[in-house]
Nucleic acid binder design. Sequence first.
RNA 1: GGUCACGUGGCCGAGUGGUCAGGCAUGGGUCUGCAAAACCUUCCACGGCGGUUCGAAUCCGCCCGUGACCUCCA
Length: 495
Amino acid sequence: MSLKVHNSYTRQKETFAPITPGHVGMYVCGPTVSGESHLGHARGFITFDLIFRYLMYLGYKVRYVRNITDAGHFEEEGREAEDKIAKKAFLEKLEPMELVQKYTKLFHWGMKQFNNLDPTIEPTATGHIVEQIEMIKKLIRDGYAYEVNGSVYFEVKKYAEKYPYGKLSGRVLDDLLETTRELDSQEEKHARQDFALWKSAPPEHIQRWVSPWGEGFPGWHIECSAMSTKYLGEQFDIHGGGMDLLFPHHESEIAQSTICNGQTPARYWLHNNMITINGKKMGKSYNNVIRLTELFSGDHPELAQAYSPMTIRFFVLQTHYRSTLDFSNDALQAAEKGLKRLWDAYSELMKMSVDPKKQINPEIENQFNTLCGEFDEFMNDDFSTAKILANMFSLVNHINSFKSGALEKYTLSEATLEYAKRQFKNYLEVVFGLKQETAADSEKLNAVMELVIDIRKEARNRKDYATSDKIRNQLTQLGIILKDEKDGHVSFSIE
RNA sequence: GGUCACGUGGCCGAGUGGUCAGGCAUGGGUCUGCAAAACCUUCCACGGCGGUUCGAAUCCGCCCGUGACCUCCA
């Protein structure tokens, strides 16, 4: 059973085989730190964290490179160059690097909330200006780039004579010519589909570097080519990003790297789909973003309540990564409840032990083994996390039934129980990266709760329900939920 | 306008040519001093019209609708 992934480049599911056995090189387009991350970004980073985790779970040694884009890009090709970071900095009266640092920190904080693992290398664009300039020089030397007034452009038409430009994004060069919008001041470029490798910086531009073509700043696509080549080599295994980067970003990356390195940069291109809100993509240009800080605090007009990072993570995992995922309060609330039920049952499972006095039911044994076995199968099928969760929920019923319901008189065999525990732990915690959110494990709190529960128990024994209900109700108001279990044991959980 | 996706029950979402996705919500029940939780049960969908097939939500065609990309964007 081997891992199959959907390769955007071939539009097919392919068996994954790394270039170097046992090792995987993966590059994922990271954030532009000129603003705060939002829910849409989170989906991509959670998706590739999942893939990173799963590759490691399969035993690969993974080098996961995710860049930080801290050099400004121009707003619109052909128009007056406008550095996003410089512009915002002016508005906020901050130095560009001050802004970069602020949003980089905030980004890292967000990733931590989601329990995303750190990439193995997180290079910055500003830290690799030299590598980018070297790459541009090579492109000029090979005749695929030209300089005009201190700016350098990539000549797409020439590239397309020898290479399949547009293959990744399914575009035909001639169509592009016809369908590209009318843009102003394109006169510098030989052809409108050419893209900038280096832009000459106007005097007011704050971020600028010395180059063979004068002071300027790098173009939009070159940083990823330069950094992926530097850290992963001329060809690597996986390149990831959002579907909206397919064109022109990844297409251009392929063109640049192919000329510089003589081969297509990545063997497998993986793209996650967007999060939509009210049917529309969540994005800056739609003015419908929900920032992570707003999501966690509930402080946003679209939000009925705050949603925890794990709720979001679970919400993302319930959908296949290549499908759009529609945001709504109903959907998030459903995810929140579902996750709680799943996690409660998981905790229960981990506490279960084989009871030799009870009998083994072959049918249930079989279901546990089949459903748990399918976890691997589904994950290998292009990371079908939704199907794994469905299987888990089927087992949730059984687990709960063992405790109090219809299966009370049965037990699992030692082997099956251990297998189920292993699979649940591996998938929920190791691969999916979910974790317990409430920090209820303070020794003193537990001792206090024990005392309170004991007092309430005495009241109940006296049939003094006024007192027992008062205790429970007031605790509920504090966010501590008491449950009277069937066996007389009282448990509590913290909201 | 071009290219590419998608349209599944109240909501979110898997999915395959011929038994069931799953979650949440809803109705009923069991349990409980009452709650909560849990369990059982209910809800049996696949945009429209044709076609292929013994059989299609799943394949093909047309139509309708929605979205993404073509411009910074995960």
